[in-house]
């Protein structure tokens, strides 16, 4: 028996013992998982969660409704984005999936159930999308949307930072920068119900730490989920004020108002 065989056998046995002592189950359909590949969701649930694929709006990231531009593999601006000249402080939003199904559940577990390891499959999703849709050499800084230090301490980690670390190897020239900070604690966005409330709650919530240097830099802002865009709007404004030339947003999931996916989560007025 050669060395490779032994280590393969050892790995198999370790997996068996792990499966016996710490069985894991799909968070959505409760089926038993026998590998650590995803660790939280079975392939069926994970794959059936809707992704955002071309065609989508290159500015706000929203996928075009089925039937619109059917068969086109190239993106085009959506209605609101094409009528306004410079609609947002950020340059574009790219999301990997809709905020729905297994991925929505995964993000909730990551944030609220103290399961930082879900960042791995989510990061993988993010990486695939970035590889397809972004020019990975075009950024100097990768900036995770910050948490207030009190909440960061309570949670033990910042989910956006975990995601940023997952995708970092893809960006050869970029480094993670954490000099964007949250100055005051804000409400959890998904618990606020109206657009106005959300915008109000993040106004002036972000700032730059003293050693920040975004002058003429290209920034990729990372977030777990973009709901109304209030948070990234505020972050991008601060970064642009700090001198950044480009601010692109990369998020795992994009909540799409009007889709039946999470009307409960987005509130009643939307």
């Amino acid at each position: 028996m050669n060395k490779g065989d032994i280590s393969a056998a050892a790995r198999e046995w370790t997996l068996t013992v792990k499966n016996l002592t710490f069985p894991i189950f799909c968070q959505q359909c409760r089926i038993r998982l026998l590998t650590d590949d995803n660790g939280y969701f079975c392939p069926t649930c994970w794959e059936s969660s809707p992704r955002i694929e071309r065609p989508f709006c290159p500015i706000c990231g929203k996928p075009h409704r089925a039937g619109v531009g059917l068969g086109t593999r190239s993106n085009f601006r959506c209605g609101p984005c094409s009528t306004q000249k410079k609609p947002y402080p950020y340059d574009r939003v790219l999301a990997a999936a809709r905020y729905d199904g297994a991925i929505q559940l995964a993000i909730k577990r990551l944030k609220f159930n103290d399961k930082p390891r879900i960042a791995r499959p989510l990061g993988e999703l993010l990486r695939e999308q970035a590889e397809r849709e972004l020019d990975c050499d075009a950024y100097d800084y990768i900036v995770p949307v910050p948490l207030h230090r009190v909440r960061r301490r309570a949670r033990g980690f910042n989910q956006a930072e975990l995601l940023a670390r997952e995708i970092l190897p893809l960006f050869s020239d970029a480094v993670i920068d954490t000099s964007l900070v949250r100055l005051r604690p804000t409400h959890v966005q998904s618990r606020l119900h109206t657009d106005k409330q959300r915008k109000e709650s993040v106004r002036g919530a972000f700032g730059l730490s003293r050693d920040a240097n975004f002058d003429k830099k290209r920034v990729l802002l990372i977030d777990d989920v973009v709901t109304t865009g209030a948070t990234i709007h505020e972050c991008a404004t601060v970064l642009k004020k700090g001198g950044a030339t480009v601010v692109d947003v990369l998020a795992v999931a994009l909540a799409i108002p009007g889709s039946d996916a999470d009307s409960a989560d987005l509130g009643r007025k939307e």
Binding site: L20, F22, P23, I24, F25, G39, Y40, R117
Partner: peptide, 17 residues
């Protein structure tokens, strides 16, 4: 101990087990 070592083994603890 089983709960805590689940974390070290990168698994979720399962109370029944």
């Amino acid at each position: 101990c089983l709960y805590m070592s689940a974390d070290l083994l990168e698994r979720e603890p399962d109370t029944t087990t």
